[in-house]
Design a protein around this nucleic acid. Structure first.
Lengths: 190, 190
DNA sequence: AATTGCATGTAACAGGTTACATGATTGC
DNA sequence: GCAATCATGTAACCTGTTACATGCAATT
């Protein structure tokens, strides 16, 4: 159910095609929420059917078309409702910690490989998030720039603060995961 | 796909019924992986069909029956394979951070409620995990005791170390989430 | 006799993944 | 002419959630 709000969040800064959105999902927002194209196009149709989006069909060259999606008033209202609604936390489902709890069933080398992989995985996430964070703080972030362009002057600082805090949280999490993996490696060596 | 390995992990310490497993999923392992009964019973049947479990049907009183599940050799092998296989990390899907990135669309009070709820949520998880951790360190944990009873003496320390490290990681994560929420609250007040 | 605990499932639906499938346009 | 990019979907499947549904056994 979050996909539709992620889509609305992106479209609220300006109209985009499914293709544009797809790219965003493999870049900026994709660091927090990812979706494949096969999920995006049907969901856009559903949002349109629900009246939260309006599609503007544009010709593209001679034969082709593209659908530019706009957020409707109802869409904006739905987004604000989602923001105001309390988040439903679901039970923890954590593959990495599930496996970590049973590493004694394998060899030490196996456990070592597990922790090294975990560290590498989160190292990669950390780098992405740090890059995003730097672009937010320096105001170079393209989606943030578009966002600020359609935001009242009084709200701009606030907008930046929330994005910054979000990514600081992600960076913090990545560092915690790396520290945990390194602790695991020390445990195996010590 | 992790549910079956969580079930195998539990059954490897000794035979249990679906009901027993269900209780474990709302307690010990449930802190890392949760599953409702409606998912457990069919999955046990599937594991049986795949030859990873063997069901021992026992009479219960006059009319009733119960099915005690045992891990077969194939089941044990499958579990070890899972432990040895590299973990497939999936893309991040994080509702809390997704919403946090767009809190400027709501009021400050709304954002405050969001962070307070986030803190309370993780405070609850933290307490559960700290309790588990204490029971692991003091060797009072019932599943760990059963585990150690069927573990070669040489491997007991290792087994404890992995469980302890896992829960230390969860505790660390909960603390990080709480710190992030509190940072958010300070941001709103400052 | 009533309550609590033991015990086992089905059905419908939502959400998400992977694979498959196609074709036009633009820039080199 | 070719490659990269733009553009849009369908189909099958898996996983997981929520709601529904039942009934015996042991204890008080």
């Amino acid at each position: 159910m979050s996909l539709r709000y992620a889509l609305l969040a992106l479209l609220r800064v300006g109209p985009m095609t499914g293709y544009d959105l797809q790219k965003q999902f493999s870049q900026s927002v994709g660091h927090v929420w990812h979706a494949p194209d096969s999920q995006i196009y049907p969901e856009l149709r559903r949002l349109e059917a629900d009246g939260l989006l309006r599609a503007e069909e544009q010709p593209r060259g001679e034969r082709a078309k593209r659908r530019l999606y706009h957020v409707t008033d109802a869409g904006d209202a739905a987004f604000r409702e989602w923001i105001a609604a309390p988040l439903e936390y679901q039970r923890v489902k954590d593959q990495a910690h599930l496996k970590a709890a049973y590493l004694e069933a394998g060899t030490d080398d196996n456990a070592r490989a597990f922790f090294e992989r975990h560290r590498a995985q989160w190292q990669g996430e950390l780098e992405q998030w740090e890059r995003e964070l730097a672009r937010i703080v320096s105001l170079e972030h393209p989606m943030l720039q578009r966002r600020l362009a359609v935001t009242a002057a009084a709200d701009r600082e606030r907008t930046i603060a929330f994005k910054r805090h979000t990514y600081e949280g992600l960076v913090r999490r990545a560092r915690a995961e790396i520290a945990w993996a390194e602790e695991g490696l020390r445990m195996l060596d010590g």
